[in-house]
Design a protein around this nucleic acid. Structure first.
Lengths: 208, 208
DNA sequence: ACATGTGAAGCGCTTCACAGCG
DNA sequence: CGCTGTGAAGCGCTTCACATGT
């Protein structure tokens, strides 16, 4: 069995993928230092990261761009479609529903849900917002595996529980709160205001 | 001089702060294991992290909630207002402009900019979208230190350069691309579709 | 000649385990 | 006694430096 890929490497793979796509169309191969410069890391790290995928580089030349793209995509599970539901259709939920970066990677939004009856029935990005009672049926009918939580903080835990009950296996949490671990469910948190607070820490430290 | 606070600790401080705020109003003190459970980390890490701020706990009791809140806020520079500008008023930019999490932490949006003349003049969350030519004057007049980039990928580098030229010191990049390091500027990247790809990696690995 | 792939060293964070203190 | 604060050990990632391969 292949050794497990370190978590930090997994997080960098999408970045490398994006860099490969930004390369000029004609470029057939790319060296680790070039990719490193684009991704904002150093060359040794690129080589080590890519070595976990197997040996796809050519010594003296570099990496075949197309082959590496396929390989990273395969590793990230991007060669297939993933059905995604979004719960919480506020400003952020709407922005996520419209976000083209998901579609490019074959993440398809197959359901939008909101607890607010005034939002139910609205149309967002070609989908109709449905009531929470429809969550279970929609998840199973449309085979959704990933759920996005973009509700206010106070609703997030309950929504996560409902997603788990509906059969969702992975949750991306944009609500500004921590969801407690759920059995067999992978939860990732993206907190928009955490990031700005980190900036503020360093601004504050390095002289107003 | 105090030892520097590890980067990973800085990233957790906003989480602890949020947990402290979620505590019931009457609760005067909190133990490291309780805070750890809320934040989704272990107790030793909480204690080590908080020890970098100084010794604000009471042995046999725990941490004074109010004091700890103030201390973390102070460390993160949240006791003062920070003026923020947003460039790129698409779906995401609008969501960020409306995002209440920024205001709660005294980050004030003082300017919205877009290169698209059709967007200029629109009103979003009480602010009028201005043309890029106004970036420099607005940043200096309103003392903005932080810039948020929520443009398409292809525009991000140029916008970052313009923000730097305008006097911005810290950039939060939501565009799905890497901005190359700029002298004296702290850049943080938040890539919404990176996170979902990481989920997909683990889904893919742990059996469809 | 040149760039990858990789042991090994280095480094920083995590976790342990317990001394210290209220 | 209970919980913090912290040296020290453990662990995983980063970086180096060069052997390896074309």
């Amino acid at each position: 069995m292949k050794p497990a890929i370190p978590k930090v490497t997994v997080q960098r793979l999408p970045v490398y993928l994006r860099c490969l796509e930004d390369l000029p169309a004609g470029q057939g191969s790319v060296a680790s230092d070039e990719l490193a410069a684009m991704a904002g890391v150093n060359a040794a790290k690129v080589r080590k990261d890519l070595s976990y995928l197997g040996s796809y580089g050519v010594r003296g030349v570099g990496y075949d761009v197309e082959r590496l793209r396929l390989q990273i995509g395969l590793e990230l599970g991007l060669e297939r479609d993933w059905a995604v539901v979004i719960v919480g259709v506020g400003n952020l939920g709407r922005a996520l529903a419209n976000y083209s970066g998901f579609g490019e990677r074959r993440f398809q939004i197959v359901g939008l849900f909101d607890a607010d009856p005034r939002k139910v029935g609205q149309s967002v990005d070609g989908l109709t917002v449905e009531p929470m009672s429809r969550l279970g049926p929609v998840v199973s009918e449309r085979g959704a595996r990933i759920g996005i939580v973009s509700t206010p903080a106070h609703a997030a835990q309950q929504v996560a529980d409902q997603l788990a009950a509906a059969g969702i296996r992975s949750i991306l949490n944009f609500a500004p709160t921590v969801i407690k671990p759920l059995d067999g469910i992978d939860i990732r948190r993206v907190d928009l205001s955490t990031e700005i607070q980190v900036l503020s820490f360093y601004l504050n430290r390095n002289g107003s």
